[in-house]
Write a protein that binds this DNA or RNA. Structure first.
Lengths: 338, 338
DNA sequence: GAACGCTCTGTGAACGCTCCCAGAAACCGC
DNA sequence: GCGGTTTCTGGGAGCGTTCACAGAGCGTTC
């Protein structure tokens, strides 16, 4: 059998009770910090716990209380993007902070294959988790459907179309994209294009929609290229393609900072000066933005706060409170790239 | 009480047994895929499961089997670095792959504060996890000590000094650093420095030691600067400092690719050409390497495989097999930066 | 001094599952 | 047709907790 079984038997609450000369119930009350325990009994129990090396068996506790005090953070992201996008890390840390305060454990579940998808669904159904924060779900995500099906308290970061009616923490991508594109146009650019990405998600779709809205009459579909992921490589290739399509292009909205960084490299290799010849703006205000030369004009997205907020939405449901969608503010950060 | 309790009562194994007109024992055998179940009974049980919507209660199962089929991946990393370093993502995915195959669930636990540290330790002790992969532990990490104390099967990625005697998956940082420094020296550089980082970990220490070994007589402590983390910012500042200390510097070994990227920017801003004036080499072969102009000469570190291997070391222990440290190969990737 | 309220403690009954044993049924070989 | 093996099923016991309840002890009030 497994080594687990062969390890020395763990002390139980009964061992503590015996050592302290008290009953199970009193030990349980001490462990759970309830009132109605005499100071004397409390001290005896604490001494006994130290003596026998007792730690509470979580499985047994979960079985009777029907909860686990753990919240899952479900990341469904392709290999290549996971962690190239600094937003995910920030969301994770933001969520961790909120849950930590409420004394919940954050458990990150990664979906990287179909097999994972099933195993994660089992994990959810099995009751190992009291709620879930779902990151980067795309339209009609099977896991999102599973969560809704189980009736698990959950919240999205972002709010994909076609997914179950759950609360979410998001930004207004349409408005933010519109704002920064307008600002770019305000610098007097005549031929402005976009490198769109991730059109299978709300964020990708909405940023494109915002761009379109800002462009109005001037919108030219030939100046829009599309890539599946928010990557540096997409920006690099996309910019080359745009330059080929229209060498007179003088402005670009990249769907994310990583995309903008790739685009900037392509422009500089093609001998264009940024921002003199071509102005470029990004989205996210991630660590990429300050790393570019010139530094990137972009939209600041409060990634950590999105994670925190989504976690709070789940906690609210757990406490039986109503929880409704929350839209967070974005700010245009104007720097040297346009 | 919590909403969890208020959700409709979940179907239990008894409900299935009643619906199928069979006993608990038979249902359990079907669910666990054991033999000695007639085809007839199996079908009846499966129909009943579908009918009542049964899913096994993991807490109850864990309680009696004394195992959880989950492995924790413990990440103890400062905010700023988590996910700026693409290695961590690769390790995570590599470990996930191995565990997924063995039908174990990977659970990522983030330590971001002291409170986290305690909560994670409780999580481990509570029996919610059968084993642990510990990433980026530093010398005398409290969590590493806790793991050893509990007697939990575990493995490190990397092998810090002063940590408990557990198996690990690592690379030979000393040798790899020595190899790439030698190669850099082989291009005829006269004044070679290093931007060292993360000296609180084995990797940081060992890369510095390898650099020193390669330099031999030519080692000059004034040409070594130290930073706490493997970041772009460290590389940027470190390079500026080196240039101030010795403007004739013509070669640099940066402790990671992110550091090298920062150093390259600093050099270019100072008007130095890479590689003509100054040759620069990095470490990791992460996504940074191909993103730099010129592309980075660096050491390829098999991050995904490190994760996979560490996970396998844990699984081996779980099966009662002996598991011993594994050192993986690295390769020098020679590109345009030196 | 009876009635009432607090504070504190002990104990039976779950929670939902797996394990193990007993026994029934079926199949064999001689 | 009988003992022996193999296949299959049922149900008691137990995993380590929490919860609800009962009751003991003690002080306060009328």
């Amino acid at each position: 059998m497994s080594l687990t079984r062969m390890r020395a038997r763990r002390a139980t609450i009964n061992d503590v009770a015996d050592a302290a000369g008290l009953s199970r119930g009193t030990v349980s009350r001490v462990v759970n910090g309830e009132k109605y325990v005499s100071a004397e009994a409390r001290m005896a129990v604490e001494a006994a716990i130290a003596q026998v090396g007792y730690v509470r068996n979580t499985a047994a506790r979960n079985l009777v209380t029907q909860e686990s005090r753990a919240i899952g953070l479900i990341i469904h992201e392709p290999h290549s993007l996971l962690f190239e996008d600094p937003n995910i890390g920030s969301i994770l840390l933001g969520a961790n902070e909120a849950l930590s305060k409420a004394d919940y454990q954050l458990v990150t579940l990664i979906i990287d294959s179909d097999r994972d998808s099933h195993r994660v669904a089992d994990h959810l159904r099995g009751g190992l988790i009291d709620g879930a924060v779902i990151v980067s779900a795309r339209a009609s995500d099977p896991i999102a459907a599973a969560v809704a099906d189980i009736g698990l308290p959950a919240a999205f970061v972002g709010h994909p179309d076609g997914t179950p009616d759950l609360p979410y923490a998001a930004i207004d991508n349409v408005e933010a994209a519109r704002a920064i594109t307008s600002r770019l146009l305000g610098t007097g650019r005549q031929r402005v294009g976009m490198i769109a990405s991730a059109l299978d998600r709300d964020s990708g779709q909405d940023r494109l929609a915002g761009f379109r809205a800002a462009m109005g009459e001037r919108y030219d579909p030939r100046l829009v290229v599309e890539y599946p992921l928010y990557t540096y490589a997409a920006g690099f290739e996309g910019m080359q393609k745009l330059l080929r399509r229209d060498p007179s292009i003088d402005g670009v909205f990249a769907a994310s900072d990583a995309v903008a960084a790739g685009a900037m490299t392509a422009l500089q290799e093609a001998g264009r000066r940024v921002p003199e010849d071509v102005g470029i703006v990004g989205f996210d205000d991630s660590s990429w933005a300050l790393r570019c030369r010139p530094q990137l004009s972009t939209v600041r997205q409060p990634a950590g706060l999105l994670g925190t907020t989504a976690a709070e939405l789940v906690l609210a449901q757990l406490m039986g409170l109503p929880s409704s969608p929350r839209v967070l503010e974005t700010v245009v950060m104007w720097r040297g790239s346009a």
